[in-house]
Amino acid sequence: MVLTTYQAAALLLFNALEQLSYSEIKTQLNLADEDVVRLLASRFSPRVPLPPVDKRKKVVEDVDKDRRYVIDASLVHIMKSRKVLNHQQQLVSECVEQLSCMFQPDFKVIKKRIEDLISHEYLERDKENPNQFRYLA
């Protein structure tokens, strides 16, 4: 049997007990949540190798970057069709509705993307009503 050190350590825990909870495994091995999940997932599907943590982080960063572009495109599309929206919440909720079939966007990320589009002069806030947005491009 070929095992990683953590896989072997996890199996050795079962020498003393027949059942262990997730938190017991985490505590006994002194691992972070993501490492315990990787460890347990690898035990249930040993023929599927898990990517190294550094590659996994790169994948997550790449996905987040791609999602930012998709959020930007959605926001610009909404504003291009509407020209003016009276509330930031309305813009955010329409964006979430458009993107929900692909992924569940985070409200904070959408608000940050709105601010970025303002700084790049795709959108502007109304000077009299800061909750109102106008499409510029």
Rank of each mutant, 00 (worst) to 15 (best):
Q89F: 11
Q90T: 12
Q132H: 06
D62W: 15
T5I: 12
M79N: 13
V48S: 06
L39N: 03
P130Y: 10
M1T: 04
L12P: 03
L17Y: 10
P46H: 10
L50P: 12
R113S: 00
V76H: 09
N86P: 07
I114K: 08
M79A: 11
D116S: 15
I78T: 09
K57E: 07
V53K: 15
P105Q: 02
D126Q: 10
F14W: 04
F103M: 09
D35F: 09
A41E: 13
A16N: 14
E121T: 02
V109N: 09
P52T: 02
H77G: 11
Q28M: 06
V76L: 15
P130R: 15
R67T: 00
V59D: 07
V70G: 05
K108D: 01
D33P: 12
A16G: 13
E24D: 11
Q104C: 05
V36F: 04
D33A: 10
R125V: 05
N129K: 12
S42F: 04
Y122W: 14
K108G: 05
P130M: 08
T27I: 07
D126C: 10
R67Y: 10
S21H: 07
L39F: 01
A10G: 09
D72E: 12
S100I: 03
R38S: 06
R67M: 01
L99M: 05
L136W: 08
L39G: 00
D66K: 14
S119G: 07
M79R: 12
Y122E: 00
V37H: 04
M1R: 05
L117I: 05
E24W: 10
L136H: 06
V63K: 04
V48K: 11
S119Q: 13
F103S: 01
